[in-house]
């Protein structure tokens, strides 16, 4: 697997099909995987792909406009690349997607515990809602012959927890999010790490007008977290990076997934389904539901 990956990477650099490859290398702890940017053939030896390759590297693609970039991407990463293509943030010809088959990456707490081989329970939550799979878009596929499909099974009902929460009383719901959001320190790590949060001036940074309190108080935090999630409607592909990056552990995926579920129900829309798909909020259907309108 890694052999094939490195071989392909070398070839791409050698033939100058790409100027750089964004991939993963083994971290200094000998277990985790960290991003690596390689430009020379010999560096390709550092490339790896395994269950520790949690990060979504597509966030880096926009940093190199006009350059030919190769990127190692699993299914969820590929879907974020698709959204960026839909939104004209990337040129298809500028990127070379080295697709990797994925059967789940591990949860970060497993990493922290220093365990060598993750058991089934240690896979990341996001992978439970994903079909272990081959990326839907790639230029070259590194197939995973040597590794048995030991990945997590797709959840029967990926929105079970969301539905459970919806069934709670309005007071309970407010109390829950009030407590969660009250911990937010407005570090905007969730925004910085999100491939889709590329606005040159985020609404959270605007001062004319100031859309919501910039202090970490309830009003500001609630408005920030609602608007962040809303801006990702139909764009969030549930890579889970925001939740992973949040230093105070706010369950951001539970907000993202709520919207994901709603847009599926309301508009039969799935983010990052294909390059030709129109962005959710820049299109409409004559028959969109309007039972909530008086």
């Amino acid at each position: 697997m890694n052999v094939e990956l490195r071989k392909k990477a070398k070839e791409l650099l050698k033939t100058k099909q790409v100027e750089m490859i964004i991939g993963y290398q083994r971290g200094p702890d000998g277990i985790s995987a960290t991003p690596v940017f390689i430009t020379r053939e010999e560096e390709a030896e550092n490339l790896i792909w395994d269950v520790y390759c949690v990060y979504n590297l597509s966030n880096y693609l926009k940093d190199f406009p006009g350059k030919k970039i190769g990127i190692i991407a699993k299914e969820c990463d590929v879907r974020s690349i698709i959204v960026l293509l839909q939104e004209n943030q990337l040129k298809r010809d500028d990127i070379f997607i080295i697709g990797v088959e994925c059967s789940g990456v591990i949860a970060e707490h497993t990493l922290a515990s220093g365990k060598e081989s993750p058991g089934e329970l240690d896979f990341d939550e996001k992978c439970k809602a994903c079909r272990p799979s081959t990326p839907r878009l790639y230029d070259y596929l590194v197939s995973q012959k040597d590794q048995k499909d030991k990945g997590v099974l797709p959840e029967e009902n990926p929105y079970q927890d969301i539905r459970k929460f919806e069934a709670k009383s309005i007071e309970e719901r407010f109390k829950f999010w009030q407590e969660e959001f009250s911990r937010c320190i407005r570090c905007y790590a969730c925004r910085q790490i999100c491939p889709m949060c590329y606005c040159p001036r985020c609404v959270a940074d605007q001062t004319m007008p100031t859309w919501f309190s910039r202090a970490p108080d309830l009003e500001g935090n609630l408005a920030w977290n609602v608007i962040r999630a809303f801006h990702l409607a139909g764009r969030c592909i549930d890579c889970g990076e925001c939740e992973r990056a949040c230093p105070v552990g706010i369950p951001l995926r539970e907000v993202n997934k709520k919207i994901e579920k709603d847009i599926k129900e309301l508009f039969d829309y799935e983010a990052g389904a294909g390059v030709d798909q129109k962005p959710l909020l820049s299109c409409f259907d004559q028959n969109d539901p309007e039972d909530f309108i008086r």
Partner: peptide, 10 residues
């Protein structure tokens, strides 16, 4: 439609 449901959710 999205915002309405989201506000209710939180």
């Amino acid at each position: 439609a999205i915002l309405k449901r989201l506000l209710e959710y939180i």
